[in-house]
Nucleic acid binder design. Structure first.
Lengths: 244, 244
DNA sequence: GTTGGTGGTATTGAAGTGGTATTAACTACG
DNA sequence: CGTAGTTAATACCACTTCAATACCACCAAC
């Protein structure tokens, strides 16, 4: 039992209704940090029995906390401490997400989709033998029809054997095939654009570009995707939130 | 029979579900090294019978280990200990942390520590009026005595009024003053080094550098720090893990 | 191929959770 | 008084989770 539960004390003789007394005490307990974010509160029935009130009374108290945004309820599952508003994710904002957020219209254009053999680097990072086939995808990423990034993907043949079947989202296609990427390690670096990149990205030669190398893993832990993205920094500007 | 199997003990009376109890104990056993990498775990049926639970319950426990990347399953063949891969967090690896991890010796050298007035950009992002004083710090970050980054920090005067008092860690100094940075938004971009940067970072002019702009917040939500770090990409290579 | 063991999955039921309609008692106020 | 609104209780419904059974699909050894 949570320590808090035994500390709650209601007084029926008082003029303020029971459910308000309870709500008030719960607010104080939550703000004092008695529960972690995401942790389950005692169920309405437990709360009711241990305080000798009806479940409805306990429930009305919780209603107030919901209105305050302090807790969240899930039917059939329980009541949980709500995440505090501005402690958002420690997660990378994806290409599409970010552009949409900023009011741009993302799209992409295929440069090539074909089968091939892995380079030494690729076979090392993807854990393949040299005679393994790989699917190689290359495309331009656009925002409002302006090129903002060049992206090259390499996938083991056993993960994706028909390059042409990828029409829009690569990740979506992998999900449909039953082999979704569930985790990824992403390195971020910077390079000077060579002649080819500069032409594709429509920037002057030697312009500094963000280079992001993402190694995606399948559910079984094997590598399933190696993608390198070269980003123009005037458009894409990638962001992380740190908490501690 | 593996020695571990007889050590597993489940308690149906406990409130935590059986499959979680089992998962927890298996994680501990695996991390204790009870099985070699690639070795087969007891089959789901063996696990179930020896613990007097249904196969599904044993299976759900294994599901969690798969999600954690600890084991791999092969249909018709068995369940095996997965090769360990770098299990980094969904967190930014800090400058010092990363270098130490890779076996380097980090240090830093002050270029300047003084009071001044904020630029327009700084006063905007830190939420200051133009006549506010700011503390300005500039230093080189070294790994094994080679420059790997140039860092410029700007802090409101009310947060840090004596620049000279920062000797080693800025964050540590702020903690000591009772105004720690508890959250930060970090933008990552790339730029071409100008003449001054190139000279400080000891790279050719126009070399691509990672530019990381970090806006740190105090516990009360006010901005407390604006730091720009220019990183050589041949040394520092910053990494995030994505999960979803 | 056949066989025995493996993981994969559809379905079920019990128990626990929040959701809601209805009713009884109390209070405030004209 | 009598009415309206608030407070609190009961009873029942719907959803989720946990654990079980039964059956299917795959692999390897013979």
């Amino acid at each position: 039992m949570a320590p808090t539960l035994s500390r709650l004390k209601l007084d029926a003789a008082q003029s303020t209704p029971l459910y308000r007394q309870l709500a008030q005490q719960l607010v104080e307990a939550i703000e004092a940090g008695d529960w972690e974010t995401g942790e389950a509160l005692p169920s309405e029935r437990v709360l009711a029995e241990s305080l000798n009130i009806s479940r409805i009374t306990a429930r009305k108290a919780l209603d107030r906390l919901v209105a305050l945004g302090l807790i969240q309820r899930t039917h059939g599952s329980g009541t949980f401490i709500a995440p505090r508003l501005n402690q958002s994710l420690t997660r990378l904002t994806s290409f599409t997400e970010l552009l949409v957020q900023r009011g741009h219209r993302p799209s992409s254009r295929w440069l090539s989709r074909r089968l091939g053999t892995p380079t030494v680097e690729e076979s090392l990072r993807l854990g393949l033998s040299a005679d393994h086939q790989v699917t190689r995808l290359k495309r331009l990423r656009l925002a409002d029809d302006v090129v903002v990034a060049v992206e090259e993907s390499c996938l083991p043949g056993h993960v994706l054997s028909d390059p042409e079947s990828v029409t829009h989202s690569l990740y979506r296609r992998l999900e449909d095939l039953g082999t979704p990427i569930v985790r990824a390690l992403q390195h971020v670096s910077a390079i000077n654009a060579d002649a080819e990149l500069a032409q594709l990205a429509q920037v002057p030669p030697s312009q500094a570009l963000l280079m992001m190398t993402r190694l995606g893993y399948l559910a079984d832990g094997r590598p399933g995707e190696l993608t390198i993205t070269y980003c123009r920094t005037d458009y894409y500007d990638f962001m992380v939130e740190l908490t501690q």
